[in-house]
């Protein structure tokens, strides 16, 4: 079986910031904050946290502050949004630099986006999605301000998104989708309300995401994709069911999606790699106990030791780290 090409992946992440001579770099500016978080977390899991310059990163994050809204945009001069605000907070916490944020204002921004139904809008333009609900819950928890959230209302919305297959959708009535399962189960875990999960049914549905080639899909009868290694596995870890799938086959599938020339992991073998799939591939491997990697907290998708130190660890269970 091939190995995880750590030095090559580290290098590919370092190169991300240096590709300003490529059009795609500029066309993805609206994802920059998320990309920095993806890259940094992947580096942490590969134990190369210092491969990117800390101060430069903090400066970038603070330059994305949207003072009118009181949150972070994805890029300087882009509008604040919950997606980029969560990434900004995650980066600053990993870099131990939360002191450069006006936490009160961020909390106010986040809370202002909760709708009467309990779900959150991503920004003031009002698109709603359980993804944004997770961003809000996660960020408030990381900021130690969960006590200001109306938990009953929030959980009430999640419960309405639960389907007969045990999974969750993006909004009431929507089909179960592994990424939405992760955000809903993750939010319930943070809120200590996993009692709302139909554990046996959902665990069954999650285990059935594995395809004969070892990869995981996000919905029944769809193609495998490396990013589901995280969405599916994180939920399984929270439900203590990672052993319900074939870890060895999934490990080989993730490794086979590596770009062995330039580093990075793609959605599936032979495709173009990107930092999103690099993180979620590495994250999946960490949950599967791949040797040499650091532990990942599947609830927050951040380094486990950091979350543990903050006193936020929940009852998840990854596979034991292998030595070889």
């Amino acid at each position: 079986m091939s190995r995880l090409l750590v030095p090559l992946h580290v290098q590919s992440i370092q190169n991300l910031g240096k590709s300003q001579d490529e059009l795609v770099y500029h066309l993805t500016a609206h994802l920059r904050m998320n990309a920095v978080y993806w890259g940094l977390t992947a580096l942490c899991i590969m134990d190369h946290k210092d491969a990117l310059d800390r101060q430069e990163m903090i400066d970038f994050v603070t330059s994305c502050w949207d003072d009118e809204a009181g949150g972070f945009g994805a890029h300087p001069d882009h509008d604040a949004h919950l997606l980029s605000t969560l990434s900004a907070i995650q980066i600053l916490i990993i870099q131990d630099a939360l002191d450069c944020v006006d936490v009160d204002r961020v909390v106010k921004f986040i809370l202002s986006l909760q709708q009467p139904s309990g779900v959150f809008a991503g920004d003031r333009f009002g698109e709603i999605d359980t993804r944004f609900l997770f961003c809000a819950v996660n960020a408030l928890s990381l900021l130690g301000r969960l006590s200001e959230l109306d938990v009953e209302k929030t959980v009430g919305y999640i419960v309405q998104c639960r389907n007969f297959d045990g999974g969750f959708g993006s909004s009431i009535g929507a089909e179960s989708h592994a990424a939405q399962v992760f955000v809903c189960v993750g939010a319930l875990a943070i809120l200590d309300r996993l009692d709302e999960v139909d554990v046996p049914t959902l665990s069954w549905w999650l285990a059935e995401r594995q395809l004969p080639n070892g990869g995981l899909n996000g919905r029944p009868e769809k193609l495998e994709d490396v990013c589901y290694s995280f969405w599916v596995l994180s939920a399984m870890s929270i439900l203590n069911k990672v052993h319900w799938i074939d870890a060895e086959k999934l490990t080989s599938f993730i490794l086979s999606a590596q770009d062995t020339d330039n580093g990075g992991i793609a959605d599936r073998p032979g495709d173009m790699p990107d930092v999103f799939h690099t993180l979620f591939g590495v994250a999946g491997l960490s949950i599967l106990g791949y040797p040499g990697l650091k532990d990942l907290d599947p609830v927050y998708c951040m380094p486990a030791d950091l979350i543990e130190r903050m006193g936020l660890r929940k009852g998840w269970k990854n596979l034991e780290r292998r030595t070889s």
């Binding site: 200590d192 996993l194 139909d198 660890r313 929940k314 009852g315």
Partner: peptide, 19 residues
């Protein structure tokens, strides 16, 4: 009953009596 079980689970794995 399942709720009870989940409580038990979070207790068992969460380590803290407080939780």
């Amino acid at each position: 009953e399942r709720r009870a079980i989940t409580v038990a689970c979070s207790y068992r794995t969460g380590r803290k009596l407080g939780a």
